[in-house]
Nucleic acid binder design. Structure first.
Lengths: 211, 211
DNA sequence: TACTGGCAGTAACAAAGGTTACATAGCTAG
DNA sequence: CTAGCTATGTAACCTTTGTTACTGCCAGTA
């Protein structure tokens, strides 16, 4: 585990901290689609991502959902940290987007490291900063953009995250993450295909040129 | 200044910290409408609110705006803190919603207090937590609600913040903060009036019963 | 008083997105 | 090979929101 920590967090944390993390952290590998956190559940630990990606979703009362952002290598979940302090329930849902490797740190340690290690403090603040900006970006996207622009952005992100030129999702699934409906997404995807930006197939979408 | 600090932050900060804040902070009174921060500007200090309220807005490239949330007594601006560390420009606009009293703390002190005072750390984390949740709520509102629901919520908030049963804004201004257009807002307001929830007048809206 | 500028009311229309319904195309288990 | 399931394509229609245009109204002031 030390290996992975050094590789991914060595430039941020001093050796002492890395060692402490390695001592109390648990190494976890989860497959794509694995649900890491549900809305309303209590938080047991804080994840440090080693590889892969996790998507963070928001639900409304009717069960509709909306993709907020992805966590990637080197990220952690501010929402988690935030909840640890308040001992509150999770406001979001977290699902592995790809096969993902992460280290779970028990939340009790957080408080201690925060006073002990400046590097840890900076990491936590930095993480909050990043997350706030991602949320801002999400708001921009919903408030100021049309569905076709949002869809385009979605496809770009998805293919980047999955390091794959094809999106292996049904239209139904895409509609869910954008909080739209299947018919609308099919319609817009067709438009994108006619523009030569993508090619549609059953169960996957091939990306030709999104710019 | 010590007086105000103790009253509003005494339950959070020990006396030592209060004294330090009083030493380096500057006391500020700003009138409603005063622009405290513009998008793209660099951040000089961090505000601690004593009384009044500040509205936080997001702009898009075309100059359209959107109300994100309000800061009230006892709040601070996480966005500011976040920017301090990264030395980045402001992503948001801040305007006094009412006459507001606040204490500005130079950002250099932040880092020091963060290691020195546990109470300060908790305050900062707590603040991030609150802000993230407000952003989530904003996203919910935009993504899952119709304009009429958003308008209703807007009116409720506004009258609470201003401690006033009338909203002293033009339809144009309201449209701006909800990122809609004047005609739409007029239309919906009329509908609310017909439902007996409000009464419309020139330059202000009287609240009858929003529930 | 008459003029002016900003505000609000309303109608008519346009566009985006959501809904319903149905057809068809691929896949897969038997 | 085929029945049945799931994913996708498409049309027709509805609702919500945005746009344009024009009206009247009020307040301040020349």
């Amino acid at each position: 585990m030390i290996q992975e920590l050094k590789q991914n967090y060595g430039h941020l944390f001093e050796d002492d901290l890395i060692n402490e993390i390695a001592q109390v952290g648990t190494y976890k590998e989860v497959p794509a689609g694995f649900k890491l956190m549900e809305i309303g559940s209590y938080i047991k630990g804080m994840p440090l991502l080693i590889s892969g990606a996790i998507k963070i979703l928001r639900d409304d009362k009717e069960g509709d959902e909306l993709l907020l952002y992805y966590l990637e290598k080197g990220d952690t979940c501010s929402m988690t940290m935030s909840c640890c302090l308040g001992q509150t329930k999770s406001e979001i849902r977290a699902i592995a987007e790809t096969d993902t490797v992460l280290i779970m740190v028990p939340i009790q340690k957080m408080e201690m490291w925060t006073s002990k290690y400046k590097s840890w403090r900076n990491f936590v603040f930095e993480s909050y900063h990043t997350r706030l900006n991602e949320m801002l970006h999400t708001i921009d996207s919903i408030a100021f953009n049309n569905m076709d622009q949002r869809l385009l952005e979605y496809l770009k992100n998805k293919s980047r995250i999955n390091e794959d030129n094809s999106i292996r999702n049904t239209h139904q699934e895409i509609a869910g993450e954008l909080h739209s409906s299947r018919v609308v997404i099919s319609r817009l995807l067709k438009k994108l295909e006619k523009l030569g930006k993508i090619e549609l197939h059953r169960n996957y979408i091939e990306i030709i040129d999104l710019d």
